[in-house]
Every structure is written in structure tokens, then in C-alpha cells.
């Protein structure tokens, strides 16, 4: 296959897939008025890991993700993918957004082919690979439909298929199911789990949904606010390295409740009662 993300080539063993080292971000509000949104964020991610950044509104978790995507540049520290510093956006770090990003003028098939077309894949390979990923997200029947004809959940599936078909080294997701209704949301979480399992993709995802974080994550980076920083690294050890594709499987573990209670408490401490008016950097 010609689609090989350039940076995955020679990662020496032991080197983290993604590393954030003392990353900070300062926004200039007005002249001489700065706000430190992110301060000293450091964590690493291994290959094939699903890592979730969780935190209250306004903790800057989306900003961290956008810096990994290369859509924002850090004011301090550095970000490394397989040891190479991240400069600007690139196809090895494909991003799925909360808002729908299907290209209205392309069919589902062409949407999924889009990234491969940019990167010069041949027509036949594009077609086959797109079909494969469209099937993976269960949209084969809609391959020739235009996005306008699809529901919100289906549009997000198109976005996921489009990003994965482009073979990123790291899949970035910014509250991808945040705009969906509750039922569609857990369907999508389960679908994403099975897709990630079958493609062995590394995922870095931002959410403020505690249940979603525990269900999906191999590891959770919990962020505090003012300025945003990693408060606690949480490993849902009760999962014992397993990944589940049905949410109710979690409920079999008594530790699940404990973990959710713990995260809830953090969330309340951090986000809680001095509710800020707007989510920053969302």
C-alpha cells in the first residue's frame, strides 16, 4: 500500500508515539493583556493507545488537541510525534471535529476518498480503500448519497471514515459525539471502539463526558483549569487492558462506579461552582 504516514517509519522502541513536554499556550486578549490558557502540560502516548483528555469546560483541552494537530502553535514547550517536532497540520494527524465537516458537494464515497486524493493515491486504490472504511462505519448503502441526506451520527461516521482512510499515525477527535443525541452518541462510541480495534489506530480524544472517557480510554489525562494543566493521570486499571465494544460491559465491574465517582469529584472541584460563562478555545 502506498499510503504510509511518513513519520511512523522508524520509531525506536521505547520512544513514545506522542510526547508533550512542558507545553504552554498564552493567548493575547488585547494589547498587553494576556491569558495563560495552558501551562506546563506534559504527557506521553504509546502506539495503539486510546488516550482521552478529560476536564471541565474552559480547561483548554481543545487547545491542547489543536496544538497536537498543528492548528495552534505552543507558546512554550514542545510536541513530538515519534520524536519529530510538530510544525503545522499534516495528514499523519487527522482530526475529527465536533461540528459536522462533511463536504456537502461530495458524495459519501468522494468524501472518504478526499484525503487519499490529496495525497496522490491511485483511483483504484482510493475507491477500494474508501469502500472498505465506509463499510467499517456501516454506510455502504449510503456511499452515493450526499451529506445533506444523512443524519448527524452518519455525518460523523463519514468524518471518521474519511480520516482513517487517510491512514493517520494519530487520530485526533475533538468532542466528536458532543452534538449527537444520547442514543446516537453511545452507538457511535461503541462503533468507534470496534473501528479503532480493527484498524489499530492510536487515538487522542477530547471530551467532557466522564462515561465516554472511561468507556473509551486506555488512559485519561484529567486537566484542571486556570491555567489548564494535567491534574491527574487516570488509568482505568479495572479494564485490565481490555477494550469493550458494549457499554454495559463496564457495569459488570464494581470498580467502574468507583472510578466514575472519583472523576466526578475531580470534575466538581475543578469545573463546579464558579461556572465560567464560555468554554475557552472550544
Amino acid at each position: 500500500m502506498t499510503l504510509q504516514a511518513p513519520t511512523t517509519a522508524a520509531a525506536p522502541s521505547g520512544q513514545p508515539h506522542l510526547a508533550l513536554e512542558g507545553v504552554g499556550k498564552v493567548f493575547e486578549l488585547r494589547r498587553n493583556e494576556h491569558i495563560e490558557a495552558i501551562k506546563d502540560v506534559s504527557f506521553t502516548m504509546q502506539e495503539n493507545e486510546v488516550c482521552v483528555i478529560l476536564g471541565p469546560s474552559g480547561c483548554g483541552k481543545s487547545t491542547v488537541l489543536r496544538m497536537v494537530a498543528g492548528l495552534e502553535s505552543p507558546s512554550a514547550g514542545q510536541l513530538l510525534l515519534d520524536g519529530n517536532p510538530i510544525h503545522g497540520p499534516g495528514r499523519e494527524r487527522g482530526m475529527v471535529f465536533q461540528s459536522y465537516t462533511s463536504f456537502d458537494w461530495l458524495t459519501v464515497q468522494d468524501n472518504v476518498e478526499y484525503g487519499m486524493r490529496l495525497n496522490g493515491a491511485g483511483a483504484r486504490e482510493r475507491r477500494e480503500r474508501a469502500a472498505e472504511f465506509i463499510e467499517l462505519v456501516g454506510l455502504t448503502k449510503f456511499a452515493n448519497a450526499y451529506p445533506r441526506q444523512l443524519s448527524g451520527g452518519m455525518k460523523q461516521r463519514v468524518a471518521i471514515a474519511r480520516t482513517l482512510a487517510n491512514d493517520p499515525a494519530l487520530l485526533l477527535m475533538d468532542e466528536p459525539f458532543g452534538a449527537l443525541d444520547a442514543q446516537t452518541r453511545w452507538h457511535m462510541q461503541e462503533l468507534m471502539m470496534s473501528v479503532v480495534e480493527s484498524t489499530r489506530t492510536s487515538v487522542l480524544m477530547v471530551t467532557h463526558d466522564i462515561e465516554e472517557a472511561i468507556f473509551l480510554a486506555d488512559r485519561i489525562e484529567f486537566m484542571s483549569r486556570h491555567p489548564g494543566s494535567v491534574l491527574e493521570e487516570i488509568k482505568p486499571t479495572f479494564k485490565q487492558g481490555q477494550r469493550f465494544t458494549r457499554k454495559e460491559q463496564l457495569l459488570d465491574f464494581p470498580e467502574y462506579g468507583d472510578l466514575e465517582r472519583h472523576v466526578m469529584k475531580l470534575m466538581r472541584q475543578q469545573g463546579g461552582d464558579d461556572a465560567t460563562p464560555a468554554e475557552q478555545g472550544a
Binding site: G70, R91, R93, M95, F97, G115
Partner: peptide, 15 residues
């Protein structure tokens, strides 16, 4: 034109 559309293309490798 929505920023997310442009950013999506950029993270898919568009120049």
C-alpha cells in the same frame, strides 16, 4: 466558509 472545513482539509494533508 466554516473554519472547521478548512482545518479538516489541512489535517488531511491539504496544501
Amino acid at each position: 466558509v466554516r473554519d472547521e472545513l478548512i482545518e479538516t482539509a489541512m489535517t488531511l494533508g491539504a496544501r
